[in-house]
Amino acid sequence: MGKGLPARRVTVRSGEVVSSREERLRGWLFCGGGFLWLTVFVVGPLAAILAMGFSSRGDYGEIQWQWSFESYRRLGGVGELGFDPVYPLILFRTLGVAMATTLGCVVCGMPFAFFIAGFKGHRRTAALMGVMIPFWTNLLIRTYAWQILMAPQGPLTVVARAFGWVGEGDALYPGLFAVYLCLVCDFIPFMVLPLYASVEKVNWALADAARDLGAGEISVFWHAVLPQIRAGLAAGSLLVFLPALGQFVIPDLLGGARTVLLGNLVQQQFVQGRDWPFGAAIASVCLALVALGLALLSRLQPASEAAQNRIGSEERHEGWVG
C-alpha cells in the first residue's frame, strides 16, 4: 500500500474495492442466519444437557436447578446401599460393545475396501453406490429385518440349526450375538467409505519395492500399505465407534435385559423414567467420549476431511481461511 493512502485493509472483489467493514457485513449477510441457528440449536441443547446433568430431581419429580453431583455419583456406582455396579457395568459394556463393533467393522471392511478399489470406471461407481444405498436407508428397518432373519424359522436360524448351533424352536435373538451382528451390518458403510478413499490413493510402487527387497506378504501390508491408509482407518473407526456408543434401537430390538447400553439408559430416563437429570448425566458422559474421540482423530487427520467421509463424498474442499 503506497504512502498517502489510508492504511486500511481492503479486499478486491471482482475489480471492486470493498472496505473491511463492508466485507464483514457481506460475510454476515450470508452466514449470519446459519451461525445464529447453530448457536441457538446446537450450543443451546448441548449446554442444556451438560447443565441438567448437575441438577437434581425433587420429591415430586420436578427439576431442581441446584448444583448437585447426585447423578454422576449414581452413574459411578454409589447406590443407596453402598456400591452398586449396575451403571458402571453398563458404561463399560457400552465401551466394550463399541470397540468390538469397530474391530468387527475393520476386519470385515478392510478387505471390502480393497475389493471395491480393485474395480475400474463404471463398475467401481456401481460398487460404491452399492455401499451407499444401505447407508442411506432407514436403520430401524435394517434392524428389525434381523428379527425376521433370526426368528425361529428365519433363514439364518435354519442355517445355524443345520450346524447344530441352535436348538429346535429357538431363535438367534435376543442376545449379544444378534446385537453385534446387526451393529456391524448397519455401521460397515461408515468404515468402508473413508477406508476406500484412502485405499484408492495408495501408492502401490511402495508395496512392489518392499516385495522386491524380500518382504513377505504380511510385512508388505504392515509396513508398506497400512501406513498409507492409516488416516482412513482412523476416520472410519471413529465414525463407527461414536454412533455405536449412543445406539439404542439395535439393543432395544435385538437385545435383552443383559444388553442394555448407554443409549437405552438415556432413552429410558427421558421417555419412560422421567429422571431427566440422570439421563442428562449419562448423555454428558457420551458427549465427553465423543469429544475425546474427536480430539484423538484430529491428531491424525483434519476434521473437515473426516466430516467429508461421513457424508460419503469423494470431493474434498479447500482448507479453511481466516
Binding site: G27, T39, P45, Q267, F270, A303, R310, W320
Partner: peptide
Amino acid sequence: SRFRWRWGRAWEGLIQAPVYVPDVVVAAG
C-alpha cells in the same frame, strides 16, 4: 468459503458438531 472468518475453526467445529454427536444425545438435548 468466500469470506475470511476470524473464528473460522470454531465455526467449523460448530457446523460439524451435530454430525458426530450420537442421535440419542442430540434428541435428549
